[in-house]
């Protein structure tokens, strides 16, 4: 919609700028604070401009074990990456197959299966945490990557979204491919995947963020520092009983924790833009 009203234009711009400030200020503060020395931050007044200790702070985090945790930030970020990728890829792989089966195959209780999957939307990990912990513990998967990833990789949301996407593929495509001699797996590989590319990219971003931001489950399932994630370490960094927390390190860690999701969004963004202007359906 376009209105030719200068006053309205200014007002909307003002609101947008306010929004940017509200969302951007904490990030900016974290970024600037992470470049000061511990002493400069002791006053309790957050500096609004960069200091000169940036390189040293980040280098310390990446190279030396974090006090109280015993592993470096590199390890934490790697753990987070493994978990987030595992969850995102696992969720997509499973819901892809589930949605494919539901849309393209006629088997008994098809609709029932779909609704059963759908109902699990009401059972996120927070709700089923006690039984889930029990199962994972009995399998001996506490403090393993598998234990951190597996309980989270079934996704009703992704199954539902992919089902909608698959249902919009024309039925004739499937039939033409069948006449050409494509079996079910062929059809999945040669048609469903390439034609759902943009949806899969979007889903991957959402699921990666979901995995990266997990807090409660890794807190329970990863007790040893070797499996701690970046998000959890943030709490450890600001938690010190007798001395002031090392704010310069905590903010540097926060900045580093934000970066991988940003990278994923930027990497996947071209698929969305293509998807909007260049639909192939």
């Amino acid at each position: 919609m376009r209105y030719d009203r200068p006053l309205l234009d200014r007002l909307t711009h003002l609101l947008l700028i306010l929004g940017v400030i509200v969302f951007g200020l904490p990030l900016w503060l974290a970024l600037t604070a992470s470049t000061h020395s511990a002493g400069a931050l002791q006053s309790g007044i957050a500096p609004l401009w960069f200091g000169g200790e940036g390189l040293a702070n980040y280098w310390q985090l990446l190279s030396q074990p974090i006090a109280g945790l015993g592993v470096s930030a590199l390890r934490l970020l790697a753990n987070s990456l493994v978990m987030a990728l595992g969850i995102a890829i696992g969720k997509i792989a499973i819901s892809l197959l589930a949605a494919y089966a539901i849309v393209f195959f006629r088997f008994p209780c098809r609709t029932l299966c779909f609704w059963l999957i759908f109902v699990t939307l009401m059972l996120p990990v927070e709700v089923r945490i006690v039984p889930t912990y029990g199962v994972v513990a009995r399998f001996g998967l506490i403090d393993t990557y598998a234990g951190m990833i597996l309980p989270l990789i079934a996704s009703a949301t992704a199954t539902f979204l992919l089902r909608q996407s698959f249902m919009s593929l024309p039925q004739e495509l499937f039939e033409a491919a069948r006449l050409d001699g494509a079996g079910p797996l062929r059809f999945l590989k040669d048609f469903v995947l390439p034609l759902s590319k943009t949806n899969l990219a979007a889903l991957f971003v959402i699921m990666f963020l979901y995995g990266w931001n997990q807090y409660l489950w890794p807190l329970l399932a990863a007790n040893s520092p070797e499996h701690a994630t970046a998000v959890i370490s943030l709490k450890n960094l600001v938690q010190s009983t007798d001395t002031l927390p090392p704010w310069q390190l905590a903010t540097a860690m926060a900045v580093m924790t934000v970066l991988p999701p940003v990278a994923v969004i930027i990497a996947m963004q071209r698929f969305f833009v293509r998807g909007l202007t260049d639909t192939e359906k």
Binding site: P170, L173, E175, L179
Partner: peptide
């Protein structure tokens, strides 16, 4: 050994 031509062609868009 049959080939079919569909009403809306059903060409592979990608």
């Amino acid at each position: 050994g049959v080939a079919m031509v569909f009403q809306n062609y059903a060409l592979y868009p990608h």
